[in-house]
Design a protein around this nucleic acid. Structure first.
Lengths: 350, 350
DNA sequence: TTGTATGATGTAAACGCTTACAGTAAGCGT
DNA sequence: ACGCTTACTGTAAGCGTTTACATCATACAA
């Protein structure tokens, strides 16, 4: 039996190949790999040379088997993803790498809104923690994971009873309240419509609550006639507004729920000969990158998804490290007034 | 020593727990897990019961260690990601699940445009194949992987010399040619500007080639004066156009390179008092979901990213299965004429 | 000189799975 | 009755790491 080749050309190198090439044991290689334990600087160098020589890359599976730690976080999001999501993702990524975690994002787009049916592959075992978006994981699963104290952060949704899973979201209520107050106080609007998001969406519920409160506090009546479904999407939103027009429902402003819906609404109104903002104000929520380029530029609420993603990832990292984090993290938002609400006091854009 | 508990409450169950609970060996459990080999239907049922009882989920790492197959594909994309990317992602996902692959997407956003520096963690060992977007992996790495015949598909870029890595992209040249021809023939435009994408972007290069060819074939001169940088982003694109306006460069149409840039340009022109499309036609590329809602609605080229993602994933799956796939896959695109080009013959939207 | 830290390294078990191989029992043809 | 398949199941090695423990110099204090 001849000695194993020092430079395996076609098979990926293992830690053993590296050890052999560097003339040390695998334990030592592992030590320099994770810089744990004491290793002579000379040895470190020899090992590192061997590593680059061989293009060695550790087998993540073997590593997580032995270390009972995956160095991976799971991101579970619903399939319908938009600009908002890519922004979120980049925020998460920046937090992870900033913390020296060479974590990789292990993302799975669940078929629809829930992951029930087959048990979550991303649980314990296969990731160190989970970032869960809205309702992409069903309650029993959530509860089970919570019982095992598996690190999780819930994005854009509240925790479940009995289990204090940390949550993170924007301050939907306050900013909606401000948005509507602005329409009333500065733009002189009185009949303001609201378009709900997808069924059960908590952001939408909170925005609606802010909307209602603002109307009430200004002595305006909340009419169900003026509350419809926009689903946070252009077409459904436009359809709802069209049907109001058809039915002769009158309004002088629309809070479209989010910016996506606003696009559809503005276009529809334009086509219907309704002038925005002269006849009707349109306001959104999110301040997507494109919203300032709309015509008219959209008055909306700045809710930076990337910041939310970043903060969420940081929370998760702390959780994984065994630290304690607040049950609820609410990120501030701010109103940004552009042309689409039609008020006099249009501030210069910052 | 008391017998190990049948239902481990707080530790994740292993295949051994399942085997014990079902009264079989781990080999048998593994067989039903992967339905390989013959197992009595009665046994299968017993095992499956045990699995649900214990909420068993296989340890992916252990599995890939033993099977030398990860059931994971890598997706490598540059950090700057837009609407285009989420669309792409959902296409990839649908292909993977459609093929019964319970593959998960293992995505890493590389810092900038290249993954060099530290060797690619996603190589052999840690994924079964790679989907590589534009220039997110450097050539030496690509070459090394190619030598190992590691399955890869390159998106939106050509292969490297000597290594026939399959590629997939849209037909940029033809559609740009059509777009420009349309501006000339149907909209009567003569001084058409072009905004390049990021440096080295191959899509941009091909679009420019189509643009140039169309001008030449219609007897128009290509002027470098009318070729600028838009980077496929709203702000840089607007800045370029602004500087043309400042310098007194005249044009009656702008091909903005992509839809993102078009948004910035339309807004800038509007603010500068230039009417679109009356004074200047603006056309884009991609047909992002939002483009039809712009004002004026954007004339552009339909290049469905989700379809590209889906097809790319399918190619990769075939590659992994050892099948042969074409070196080059070019997806068709089509012109969609809306209001922003200002031609008479505006077709009804399909 | 001896004893004792201390630093550097090696040995080998364990992580949770797959799979080649071996084994057993039942069924069948002769 | 015998042997040969066939259907099913178990045994155990091995996948590539990490890490507790052991080992062995070396240096330093007494």
């Amino acid at each position: 039996m001849n000695p194993a080749p020092i430079f395996p050309e076609n098979d990926r190198a293992t830690i053993e190949d590296v050890a052999r090439a560097a003339g040390v044991s695998t334990a030592t290689v592992s030590r320099v790999l994770n810089n744990s334990g004491k290793v002579a600087s000379q040895t470190i160098e020899r090992v590192q040379n061997a590593i680059t020589q061989l293009n060695y890359v550790a087998h993540g599976g073997a590593r997580s088997l032995a270390a009972t730690k995956t160095n991976t976080i799971g991101l579970i999001i619903p399939a319908a993803s938009t600009l908002f999501f890519s922004s979120l993702l980049s925020g998460i990524n920046s937090a992870l790498s900033a913390h020296g975690y060479d974590f990789l994002i292990y993302a799975t787009l669940t078929p629809a809104s829930t992951a029930d049916g087959n048990p979550l592959t991303l649980g314990p075992h296969n990731s160190d923690g989970l970032l869960i978006f809205t309702d992409s994981v069903d309650d029993p699963t959530l509860r089970r994971l919570a019982r095992r104290e598996f690190p999780m952060v819930l994005l854009h949704r509240r925790s479940i009873d009995q289990a204090n899973i940390p949550t993170i979201r924007f301050n939907n209520f306050d900013s909606s309240y401000q948005l509507i107050s602005h329409l009333i106080e500065n733009c002189g609007r009185k009949r303001i419509a609201f378009l709900r998001g997808p069924d059960g969406n908590e952001d939408s519920q909170r925005r609606e609550a802010g909307y209602r409160q603002a109307l009430e506090n200004h002595g305006l009546r909340v009419t169900t006639e003026l509350i419809g479904d926009g689903l946070f999407q252009p077409e459904p939103a436009a359809r709802q507004v069209q049907s109001w027009l058809d039915q002769g429902v009158t309004f002088d402003a629309i809070f479209t729920g989010d910016d996506n819906a606003a696009m559809g609404v503005i276009e529809l109104l334009d086509r219907a000969g309704v002038r925005v903002p002269d006849d009707v104000s349109v306001v959104g929520f999110n301040d997507d990158v494109l919203s300032r380029y709309l015509n008219p530029a959209l008055t909306t609420v700045v809710a930076p998804a990337d910041q939310l993603g970043e903060k969420a990832a940081e929370l998760l990292i702390q959780l994984i490290a065994g630290e304690i984090v607040p049950d609820e993290t609410v990120l501030p938002t701010r109103l940004i007034v552009r042309a689409s609400c039609g008020c006099q006091s249009q501030a210069a854009e910052s």
